Structures are given as structure tokens and as C-alpha cells.
Simulated scan of single mutants.
Amino acid sequence: MPSEIKPLNINSTYVVMDGSGNAMPVSVSDTFYEELSRTFGDFKNKRLVSQLNFDRDWGTWEMHPAGEEFVCLISGQIDLILKQNGVENRLPLDTPGSYVIVPKGIWHTAKVHQPCSVLFITPGEGTQNRAV
């Protein structure tokens, strides 16, 4: 057990969880994703727990080939849009605590209706992005 257990804040310190059940706090900075790659490599068998705030639509589609992503609304209002077989499925998240589990390999983006805060648990290995 660590010598000191203290509270952290998801706004400034994300968590990387591995397949063995370990949870490692990681400070958020302007170079966070570059540091994440340097520290954790290809992210195999790892998930990132993060919280992000949005005041505009996402500028990209993303897809996670290594597993399902948990997307939970903390506040605000968004539509999560999943694209399957060329068809867009719009899923409204308008109540705090509402969530979607995005299936493995499905492209998704979001339309923001009200500034929002969203909690993610993301299988990062092989994540792909493309412009909306």
C-alpha cells in the first residue's frame, strides 16, 4: 500500500488503469498525450480515465479498436453520434449521469447543445481520429 493516500482531482490528474488492476495518476499538461505515449507506449491493456469540458462540437471523429469506451455526462447537454455501416445514430445525453458505452471499433463524435463536462474511460491502444 502506498505510504500516503490523498485525494486528487480528475480535472488536473487523469488515471491510467492497467489489465492487472493497477491505477496510476497522471498529471494533465499541455503535452499530456505526448507524455502518455512516452510513459505507456502503445497503451496495450490500459484504459485512460479522464474528464473533459466542451463548449463546442467535437472537431474529429474517433474510434477505439482495442475495446469499448464509457462516456458519461456529468453536466450540460450533448448528442453522442455513432456511425455504424455509414448510418449516424444520435444518442442524446441530457441528464447528469446518463452514459453510452461506445462499441469497439465504432466511429463517434459529439454535438454540444450546452457547455458540458464528460467523464471517459477509454481503451487507448490504437485510437484513431479523423476530421469531421
Rank of each mutant, 00 (worst) to 15 (best):
M1P: 13
S3M: 15
S3A: 15
E4S: 15
I5E: 14
K6W: 07
N9M: 08
I10W: 00
Y14I: 01
Y14P: 00
Y14M: 12
V16R: 08
V16S: 03
M17S: 14
G19A: 04
G21E: 00
N22K: 14
A23R: 12
D30K: 10
T31N: 11
T31R: 02
F32K: 05
E34Q: 13
E35T: 11
E35W: 06
S37C: 10
S37D: 09
D42W: 02
D42F: 05
N45K: 10
R47T: 15
V49M: 12
V49K: 14
S50I: 09
S50H: 10
S50R: 10
Q51D: 09
L52R: 14
L52A: 14
N53Y: 15
D55R: 04
R56E: 13
D57E: 01
W58I: 10
T60Q: 12
W61T: 04
E62D: 09
E62P: 10
M63T: 11
M63C: 15
M63R: 15
H64W: 00
H64V: 08
P65K: 08
E68N: 12
L73I: 00
L73Q: 07
I74R: 00
I74N: 09
S75M: 00
S75H: 03
Q77N: 12
I78Q: 07
I78E: 04
L80F: 01
I81V: 08
L82E: 09
K83W: 08
K83Q: 13
Q84S: 15
Q84C: 13
N85M: 10
G86K: 01
E88Y: 06
E88R: 03
E88F: 07
P92V: 02
L93T: 02
L93S: 04
P96Q: 04
G97I: 06
S98L: 05
Y99K: 07
Y99Q: 09
Y99M: 15
V100G: 02
V100D: 06
I101R: 14
P103H: 06
G105S: 08
I106A: 02
I106Y: 02
I106W: 03
H108S: 07
H108A: 06
A110N: 04
V112C: 03
P115I: 04
F120I: 03
F120W: 11
P123A: 02
E125V: 05
G126K: 06
T127N: 11
Q128F: 11
A131H: 14
A131R: 12
A131P: 12
V132G: 09
